[in-house]
């Protein structure tokens, strides 16, 4: 056996003053993390702050005012665009969530079948294709078949890309669910339908809710696909904001943007607390 003496290296004198770091601690990491957080939120803060600027040039601060918010609510075009956004988001969410729930159930509880991988691939396809490609492809498609349903076209496009976003949390929930509960229900003389209605669906609801919220947010936020697909009268809020930015930046843009931001933040936080497992009695 090769025995090599493994001598202790000469050591610097006891580092009295120098702060000892815990094992594995990297200096400056906390600072970096907080800088990162500032980087994420600073632009949002600046945007919201300037929405309260009195003057009509965004970047020259003249005083505090909430006038721009009043103006936003008084602007009929913005109201119309917001209404369009909500109509599109609600319709797309309703259709996408229904389709996604059915698909998730079929995939998680339908047993193994040929083409399961391909099915999954198709459902998640909209996640992989770049948005701009989806946008122009949809535009080409609608124009080549001559489909012109106004807002209907936008709803169809949104439904398509919302399906995978609704699908993912529902499927995750289904896969995390204990199948023995369904077996227990059948064991206790429930029919398939009763088991679904009384056991599967109630347990699945948080997943469905999360999927619906996610697709609602995604639909509300979409810009590029709507830009390409929507006709002149069917503008949604993001597209309207885009046209405002193009015309010149006023605090009004900031005000309407802030409202949209606030809405998304509320939705995402709600989504977060819906999907997070409730702390049970033996949760740590």
């Amino acid at each position: 056996m090769v025995v090599r003496d493994n001598t202790i290296p000469a050591v610097a004198p006891r580092l009295g003053e120098k702060k000892r770091r815990a094992f594995g601690e990297v200096p400056g990491l906390r600072t970096l993390a907080f800088c990162f957080l500032a980087f994420l939120y600073l632009p949002i803060g600046v945007l919201v702050a300037y929405s309260f600027n009195d003057g009509n040039i965004v970047m020259v601060w003249t005083g505090f005012s909430t006038d721009w918010y009043v103006k936003v609510f008084g602007n009929a075009d913005i109201r119309k665009a917001a209404l369009n956004s909500v109509i599109v988001a609600v319709s797309a969410t309703a259709i996408a969530t229904t389709c996604a729930t059915l698909a998730a159930l079929a995939l998680a509880r339908g047993g193994a079948f040929r083409g399961k991988g391909a099915t999954l691939g198709i459902i998640t396809l909209p996640l992989m294709v770049p948005e701009i490609v989806t946008a122009v492809a949809t535009l080409v498609f609608f124009s080549s078949i001559g489909l012109n349903l106004g807002l209907g076209n936008v709803i169809i496009a949104h439904t398509t890309f919302c399906i995978p976003f609704a699908f993912m949390p529902i499927r995750a929930r289904l896969e995390g669910m204990d199948t023995t509960l369904e077996q227990a229900s059948r064991d206790l003389y429930a029919s398939d339908w009763e088991t679904f209605r009384l056991v599967t669906l109630p347990l699945l609801m948080p997943g469905v809710l999360a999927g619906a919220m996610l697709s609602f947010v995604i639909s509300m936020d979409d810009f590029i696909i709507t830009l390409m697909v929507a006709g002149a009268g069917d503008t949604t809020l993001p597209v309207y904001i885009y046209s405002m930015i193009r015309q010149g930046i006023t605090p009004e843009v900031n005000a309407v943007s802030s409202i949209l931001l606030l809405f998304s933040i509320v939705m995402v936080t709600a989504y977060w607390f819906t999907t997070r497992q409730k702390p049970g009695p033996n949760a740590h």
Binding site: I8, P9, V11, A12, R14, L15, R20, F23
Partner: peptide, 27 residues
């Protein structure tokens, strides 16, 4: 092993105080 720093006291390894020797330099 050096994964934890002691709050007080002395640890000697063959006569040498190793409290401030980093893990990867301890034999």
């Amino acid at each position: 092993a050096g994964f934890e720093h002691v709050s007080g006291g002395v640890i000697r390894l063959f006569g040498q105080d190793i409290v401030d020797v980093p893990t990867h330099k301890r034999p």
